[in-house]
């Protein structure tokens, strides 16, 4: 058995992890900006606000997302970082739910089976909706939907099942309609689930990755990530019936499990240190993690070291 007790540490801004944030513009909001000086942040480009905090009393500015106006002053409605584009002031929240775009790859969990549709938890403000007509049914892609399909919807997806899907459309109320009409989408098996902040998953060309250590990673843009044992893609394409199976493959070896756990812990380490997550940095983090025993990887210090090493490696690669 192992356990370790620690006293808390102060969160420092210069702890070596290079934070890749999207705030590029300098925050020269002149004298209209109050409170910036008080914020003890060492980084002058960063203006952190809490809900209700005054951002500016200058009436020339327009209010954007995450702000509201009271007595002609712009105040923050969330805790986050002030972002300014010309005269528009918005606040990017530190903690947020997923706001998607059409075509995003997302990982979700079925929460409800309803009339001709499944409700899916996507870490968004509303549950996503997966219509029966937006899935591939067994027995041919072009098959017509029948009433019998409606009755046996639970044999396809059940409450609790994890799916990977693509955002297809928005409903009028802002809920996402998702689809699994491709063989790369569908039910998830053979691995474990991690949830990170949706803002940390970087949008990239592909969100399905097969890493060199024999682990597949699906980086859902909604912050839900699936790490699983590698399954060769061709095999899946042959067997369309298998898309809805709940059975894990039989030959997941302990070594596979260790790699999966290691990759999962690397992703947690990156997320905990606010580093953007993509396939490249995960690989570097994995390399960096190999010097630590697997069971030490939940330690805060180890996690930070891994994140620091991975970010430095990425920086070196880019020159």
């Amino acid at each position: 058995m192992s356990i370790s007790f620690h006293s808390p540490a102060v969160r420092t801004t210069n702890d070596g992890v290079v934070r890749r944030r999207a705030v590029g513009h300098d925050m020269d909001l002149d004298d209209g900006l109050e409170g910036a000086a008080e914020s003890a942040m060492k980084d002058p480009t960063l203006h952190v606000v809490t809900p209700g905090e005054l951002i500016t009393s200058d009436t020339a500015f327009m209010r954007g997302h995450g702000t509201y106006i009271e007595q002609e002053k712009v105040l923050s409605s969330v805790a986050g970082v002030v972002d300014r584009v010309n005269k528009l002031i918005s606040v990017r929240p530190l903690h947020t739910r997923y706001t998607g775009e059409i075509g995003d790859v997302v990982v979700g969990r079925i929460t409800e089976v309803a009339q001709k549709r499944w409700k899916v938890d996507l870490n968004a403000r509303l549950d996503g909706i997966l219509m029966l007509s937006s899935v591939n049914l067994p027995g041919g892609v072009q098959r017509r939907k029948q009433e019998s399909d409606e009755l046996q919807m639970r044999t396809f997806f059940m409450e609790g099942d994890l799916v990977v899907a693509e955002v297809q459309n928005f409903f009028a109320d802002g809920a996402y309609s998702i689809h699994t009409r491709s063989l790369k989408y569908g039910k998830l098996r053979n691995g474990s689930f991690i949830s990170v902040s949706p803002g940390l998953v970087q949008r990239s060309k592909s969100h399905f990755h097969s890493l060199s250590c024999g682990v597949d990673v699906i980086l859902g843009l909604n912050g839900y990530i699936w790490v699983s044992a590698h399954v060769s893609q061709d095999l899946e394409e042959i067997d369309t019936e298998q898309v809805y199976s709940n059975k894990n493959k039989e030959d997941i070896t302990p070594a596979d499990r260790e790699s999966i756990a290691r990759i999962a812990n690397c992703i947690r380490a990156l997320a905990q240190n606010f580093v953007f997550i993509n396939a490249t940095i995960i690989s570097f983090a994995y390399e960096a993690s190999l010097q630590y025993p697997l069971k030490d990887m939940h330690k805060k210090e180890v996690m930070r070291d891994i994140a620091v090493e991975a970010t430095t490696a990425v920086d070196n690669m880019r020159g």
């Binding site: 969990r109 079925i110 929460t111 609790g160 099942d161 994890l162 039910k187 059975k247």
Partner: peptide, 11 residues
């Protein structure tokens, strides 16, 4: 919510 898929449970 307290949900888990059969595949996760098995894993």
């Amino acid at each position: 919510p307290g949900l888990i898929s059969p595949a996760e449970r098995d894993y």
